[in-house]
Simulated scan of single mutants.
Amino acid sequence: MIASLALDDYTVTWVCALPVEATAARAMLDKIHPSPQYFRLIVGIGRDIVVSKPGKQHSGVIQYTYGKRIPGGFKQTGTLNKLPPILLAHIESFASSATKHSTNYLFYSSYYHASKDNNYKKCNKQQLVPQNPRDTRAPHIHYRLIASADQVMKDSNTRDRLAQKHGILCFKMEAAGLMDKLPALIIRGICNYSDSHKQK
């Protein structure tokens, strides 16, 4: 048995979202150490930012594919792990009061991407949702619910239905799989609208 090392003794962290990734990572190690105590943040990239904010019935992230099929629809069951108290204590202190709107390619939910490639040139610009221009290039930080699953969300109708039902602002892969093993504050950069116009 190896004695547990302090957090400062480590220089690299490898976070695996899927069990198969963790298995491959462990197979490469010479020794397995007990997990240290640490401050956990899982951060994605993008223009605007959504910080997972816990609510009365969720921990800030919901796994929208976790549940059971019932006549007439899908019933979500269970919740993910709660955030560590130290992260809960810091969320409100990070809150931003700025409320800006971005101008970009947000199409109406009923309008699907016009071509198989990632180019917007063939899309009908008359189908863009009107937005107010932003007077700054700085990102805006939102504190809302993040939805996660093991599949990419590229359907605007499903996106809108789930967002309206649960108050979701952001869809992300892998966060739910990490939350049960490694309770963390999820900070996700918004880089697309989770619709058919989504680009890599």
Rank of each mutant, 00 (worst) to 15 (best):
A138G: 08
P183L: 00
A89C: 09
W14I: 15
R69T: 13
R137N: 13
A163N: 03
H140C: 15
D160E: 00
S110Y: 12
F171G: 02
Q76N: 11
A114N: 04
A98P: 09
A22M: 11
T11V: 03
I186G: 02
I2L: 14
G60E: 00
F171H: 02
Y193C: 01
Q199V: 14
D8L: 03
D135A: 04
R188M: 06
V50M: 00
L169W: 15
L145W: 07
G73T: 07
Y143E: 02
V50H: 03
L162G: 00
E174R: 12
A176L: 06
V20F: 13
Q127K: 05
G167I: 11
M179D: 05
T99P: 10
S97H: 08
T158G: 00
G55Y: 10
I186T: 07
G177F: 00
R137W: 12
Y112V: 13
A6Q: 12
A89L: 10
A22R: 11
R47L: 08
V51T: 04
N104P: 07
S97E: 05
H101V: 12
F107Q: 01
W14T: 10
K125E: 10
Q199S: 14
S96C: 05
G73K: 11
A184G: 09
K121W: 11
S194V: 03
N104V: 05
Y66K: 13
E21F: 05
I62S: 01
N81I: 00
G189N: 08
M179N: 09
K31W: 09
F74P: 06
A3D: 07
L145E: 06
N81A: 08
D135N: 14
N192D: 05
V51N: 03
M173I: 15
I86G: 07
I141G: 03
H142Q: 11
V61Q: 05
M173H: 10
A176T: 09
P54C: 00
L87M: 04
A114Y: 07
H90E: 11
N118C: 12
E21A: 02
M28F: 06
K198F: 08
I146C: 01
K198W: 09
T103N: 13
S93P: 08
N192F: 02
G55R: 11
A27Y: 09
Q151E: 14
V61C: 02
Q127R: 04
A25D: 01
G177K: 10
G73I: 05
V20M: 11
Q151R: 15
L7K: 12
I187W: 03
I62K: 06
M173Y: 10
A27H: 11
N118A: 13
G44T: 07
S4T: 15
Q151F: 11
K172R: 13
Q164C: 02
R137E: 13
P85R: 03
G73C: 01
D150S: 12
Y10E: 02
T23M: 09
Y66P: 07
H58G: 05
D180I: 12
T103S: 12
G44N: 03
G60I: 01
P54S: 02
Q199N: 12
